[in-house]
Amino acid sequence: MFEVLPARSVRSDVFELAGSPGMVLGCAAGDMLRVADDGQFEVVEQGDNWCIQTAGLGHFSPESFAALRESTVLLSGMAEAPADLRFIVVTVSRRIGLPAIERVMDTWAAGIDGVEWWFGNGDHSASAD
């Protein structure tokens, strides 16, 4: 399994991510990554965004995805998902306070059985039971 992310080449081995990953931890849109030939990467400069990843017991419904997209707009962020909605990734500026992000994510997750969410590029984590 692999994930393709939009990125801009900065130097031969450094790229600026234009999207946050849904399946990889440690980076977000706006980060500068040094990527090795084997696909391994390191963040050489952290950008301004949180990457918030979500997963559930199955695929998300179009309605739950739409609800999260609407909620993240209130945070000046965005929610994205693959066409099959097997996960959702949210990108929000680090300038938005963690309590506001946690409130939005917890409120959204409370209505969905088995959903979990976490910060994919930080040491903060949370989940909904």
Score class of each variant (00 low, 15 high):
F2A: 15
E3H: 09
E3L: 09
E3R: 05
V4H: 05
L5I: 10
R8D: 14
R8G: 10
S9K: 12
R11D: 13
R11V: 08
D13Y: 03
V14A: 04
A18H: 13
G19E: 15
G19L: 08
G19K: 12
P21K: 06
P21H: 05
M23Q: 15
V24G: 02
V24A: 13
G26K: 04
C27S: 11
A28L: 06
A28Q: 06
A29F: 02
G30T: 05
M32R: 14
M32Y: 13
L33S: 15
R34E: 15
V35D: 01
V35K: 00
A36E: 14
D37Y: 02
F41Q: 01
V43L: 00
V44H: 08
V44F: 06
Q46G: 03
C51S: 12
C51F: 00
C51I: 01
I52V: 14
I52K: 08
I52T: 06
I52G: 03
Q53W: 02
T54H: 05
A55S: 12
H59S: 14
P62C: 04
P62R: 08
P62I: 06
S64K: 09
S64R: 10
F65T: 10
A67M: 07
L68G: 03
R69I: 06
R69Y: 03
V73S: 13
G77H: 03
M78T: 12
E80T: 15
A81T: 09
A81C: 13
R86P: 00
F87W: 10
F87K: 09
I88R: 02
V89K: 14
V89H: 13
V92R: 02
S93K: 07
R94P: 01
R95P: 02
R95A: 13
A100I: 04
A100T: 11
E102M: 10
R103A: 09
R103E: 10
D106R: 11
T107N: 10
G111T: 05
I112P: 05
D113G: 06
W117L: 08
W117S: 04
W117M: 10
W118E: 11
W118L: 07
F119L: 11
G120E: 01
G120K: 00
N121A: 03
D123A: 11
D123H: 10
S125K: 12
A126I: 00
A128Y: 10
D129S: 09
